[in-house]
């Protein structure tokens, strides 16, 4: 397989194109700042995208629509527990991840016990998580502890800390998918659930752990995002619903499942940020920006799918 036929290539090419087009306007000034911003904001999209990728890999019909609600709920409860007190960052993290674990279990319980289609199950459950977040938040905006806020907005070796977290998770997911039995089970389940079950793969265990993973990823993203932006807001997760699906598909993972692509998720996450800043710097209004973003998404999907068909 040549480099050209790698499905993740397209998202990275698109990100690079958007990056250089933006810099073309400023004749190269601000490259570092733009790259830094893209890595910071791209990290959140990449983390939720990695989770969504695992779920989408499970096969047609599998998608988690509760990501925004899980992010909001985890961030709200974690910040409430920390109450801006120093030294509570770890406690907050544990609470956020526990919330993610809980919503993941709840989502899967609805899917498995009530046999609801995952789209509907996660949609209905997300309404409940949203209510829980509203109820516990009550419009308060609690600041994250100073140390945690410094970490979330800080840098290490010149790269944003959140990007390091996103990168570490990407490597973890990649290793698990490519090198562990669980990863092989997941891919087999996504390619053909019936065959996988007959071959002795514990299909339901794989599905359960996947739905829990995506929720844990979402809760981590929510925790980091709230620390990054100085507090949890009820609409903080909103844009990550479409974003999480978009980065998976632009990244070259098959929406039909059974084929996932970790590097592509990061490329697409960078691209989604860069394309908006590119259109902004060319002075496009909100309307034009949306139209072009949508057109570009579709163009990439067409390019990636015709590429796949030929190889």
């Amino acid at each position: 397989m040549s480099v050209l036929s790698r499905p993740w290539l397209w998202s990275w090419l698109a990100a690079a194109a958007a990056f250089s087009l933006t810099l073309g306007l400023t004749s190269g000034r601000g490259a570092g700042e733009l790259g830094y911003a893209a890595l910071s904001f791209g990290a959140f999209a990449a983390i939720v995208g990695l989770g969504q990728m695992l779920v989408i890999t499970l096969g047609p019909g599998n998608v988690d629509l509760s990501i925004p609600a899980t992010m909001t709920l985890a961030a709200t409860l974690a910040l409430k527990a920390m109450g801006s007190d120093p030294g509570t960052a770890f406690l907050g993290l544990v609470i956020a991840l526990a919330v993610g674990f809980g919503t993941g279990v709840a989502n899967y319980a609805l899917i498995f016990l009530l046999r609801l289609p995952p789209i509907i199950a996660t949609l209905a459950a997300s309404l409940i998580y949203q209510s829980l977040a509203i109820w516990s938040n009550r419009g308060l905006r609690i600041k994250p502890p100073a140390g945690l806020a410094d970490f979330a907005t800080g840098r290490f070796l010149g790269l944003p800390n959140v990007a390091w977290v996103g990168l570490a998770l990407a490597i973890l997911v990649w290793v698990v998918l490519e090198r562990s039995v669980w990863g092989r089970w997941l891919l087999a389940t996504g390619q053909n659930l019936r065959v996988a079950r007959l071959a002795g793969v514990p299909v339901e265990l794989v599905r359960a752990s996947t739905y829990i993973s995506v929720a844990v990823f979402a809760s981590l993203a929510g925790y980091l995002l709230a620390s990054f932006s100085g507090g949890a807001a009820l609409n903080m997760g909103q844009e990550y619903l479409l974003m999480s699906i978009a980065v998976v598909v632009i990244g070259g993972s098959s929406i039909a499942g059974g084929n996932s692509n970790v590097p592509g998720v990061w490329g697409a996450a960078l691209f989604m940020f860069l394309v908006v800043s590119m259109l902004n710097s060319y002075g496009a209004g909100a309307g034009v920006r949306n139209v072009l973003t949508g057109t570009i998404i579709i163009a990439i999907v067409i390019a990636a799918s015709s590429r796949r068909a030929r190889t």
């Binding site: 998608v63 598909v249 929406i255 949306n290 139209v291 949508g294 998404i297 579709i298 999907v301 799918s305």
Partner: peptide
């Protein structure tokens, strides 16, 4: 093409035109 993705992209397009 996967309809779920194309319509996802189209949602940006429709929204953009509406804002326009």
């Amino acid at each position: 093409l996967p309809a779920i993705v194309v319509t996802l992209g189209m949602s940006f397009v429709w929204g953009g035109i509406a804002l326009f």
